[in-house]
Design a protein around this nucleic acid. Structure first.
Lengths: 285, 285
DNA sequence: CCCGCTGTTCTGTTTAGCGAAACGATTGCG
DNA sequence: CGCAATCGTTTCGCTAAACAGAACAGCGGG
């Protein structure tokens, strides 16, 4: 073929591209789809769609609806998805973005996941300051006195707010917000602006900044945050700094399979079984 | 092209087939994969794999590991999977197999899902007998006095057995098994043969036959069973009958995305919705 | 009955994807 | 220190493979 043009080969193997677009379209549209419907939606011919659907049909990536004779998502795709989801976890997906964030800003970076008792620190990247503030992986951050906690309460499921209300811990510093309505206003503010800060609320002299990470389906998967002395990370933080953290959160969300649009208010998702498994559930080893 | 042969075109669009096999291989193998590794595994050339990986890379269906330069499953596949899993549920996936089973045998057919309190009947297909035994969708079957319950205890997670033991209900009929060791033996027997019967244990004069349905990942998703008078459904049941029920269960499992091999010992229990997109994994340090 | 709508099958044409071999860049071993 | 053996990437002419378009068949409704 005359692959003269500068750019190397358009954008890839066409047949694969079409197959992916077909699967995406079928997944997006719940329920059965017809061939002509797909053909017009994807802007191509019926015969092309038909041939590809036959292929996907043989591989069980699509199936046919019993009653109507239209096409639906097949079991093989579900099986593939299941395995795919297992091979992506927050800790490793965040790693790259964390390092980039640290390199850009110089502060310590922390990624944590939402659990019942608080926010579990999954992994950290140490900052470049002389006197280091370190948070150990595996430790818990409280909901009431950390930027991560605010983010979790603002973007997590409703059940989280109820849990956090019951377990009202002692304020760690005089700066921890204790007033009920003031706290509610703060959470609401965090939800609006999309990030949270917590100067002096955990330890006096230390500031933190956090943003939410969403998983596929738009559920809160965890938080990413930076921690440093208030001298290095002032309150309020620089606009630039906030943007960097939020951008890192977005990148990680994307890596987890979160699609940009459509962030539901409060999805049914319940944080990876952590919440669910807790109440009773004997759970023998 | 000279598509002379009778059968229509081998097995489909080759490029798509390869792309799917690549994704499957990458999903199966946890962690990063190299090009040559994939090439030898799939029995093709490096350049072919490379070209396809480039395509999948542009579409974010695969990504590159930060540290090593190998390839891993990408976010787009995770997102796709998530949507795919949502569009398949036990109730609708089972419908077709249920009707086929009823047409083949004539008995009432019931599909149920495992819940904490018992087995929730999701949908039923009435039999063809004159005097009908009907089970209402939405009702609960107990663990101790139904064929479905035996199946759930035999193939479900350990926690289920503990739960069932605590909630020891009153025997519904004189035929309900009450002896502890006898019951344990019965459960073990069910696990071995792969199906369960329960003559006169729920109502005297009624027999039931059930088999397990597995979801993707090998977790118990629910049960399918047939119910009829002992006169129509004798005890022990005919070999033929058993085969049909088990076969129907297998078909439904496949439709849910269960891959034939690899049935893990005791997968995570999940009360909310048998099918779920498998979020993060614990991994705490 | 005929029209408009499905999904499916059949052509010849071409192009898009292929295999083989060469290319750099690392890594490991003597 | 260089040689060997990988690795991933790139190139290029060839041909099988995918394409567009039109014709076919089954349905349902006006």
């Amino acid at each position: 073929m005359p692959r003269i043009a500068g750019q190397s080969g358009g954008d890839g193997v066409q047949a694969v591209l079409l197959a992916l677009r077909i699967l995406e379209a079928m997944a997006a549209q719940r329920g059965p789809v017809g061939i002509t419907e797909l053909a017009t939606a994807l802007g191509t011919t019926k015969s092309r769609i038909h041939r590809h659907l036959q292929t996907l049909l043989h591989q069980s990536y699509v199936a046919r609806d019993g009653d109507t004779e239209r096409y639906v998502i097949g079991p093989a795709l579900v099986a593939l998805s299941y395995q795919a989801a297992e091979s992506v976890d927050l800790g490793s997906a965040a790693r790259q973005a964390m390092v980039e964030l640290r390199d850009a800003l110089g502060h310590s970076t922390v990624v944590s996941r939402v659990e019942v008792a608080g926010l579990r620190v999954l992994s950290t990247v140490p900052g470049r300051a002389g006197i280091e503030i370190s948070v150990k992986p595996g430790s818990l951050l409280s909901y009431r006195s950390s930027a991560q906690g605010k983010v979790a309460l603002a973007f997590g499921p409703d059940s989280l707010r109820i849990l956090a209300e019951k377990a009202k811990s002692e304020p760690l510093t005089p700066f921890t917000i204790t007033d009920r309505t003031e706290w509610a206003a703060e959470i609401e503010r965090v939800r609006t602006i999309g990030w949270a800060a917590a100067a002096n609320e955990w330890v006096v002299g230390v500031n933190a900044l956090a943003a939410p990470i969403f998983g596929p389906g738009g559920a809160l998967a965890g938080t990413i945050g930076i921690v440093d002395w208030v001298r290095a990370l002032p309150d309020p933080p620089a606009e630039q700094t906030v943007q960097q953290v939020v951008a890192a959160a977005h990148r990680i969300s994307a890596a987890l399979g979160h699609v940009a649009g459509a962030a539901p208010a409060h999805p049914r998702f319940d944080t990876a079984g952590a919440l669910r498994a807790a109440p009773r559930q004997p759970e023998v080893a």
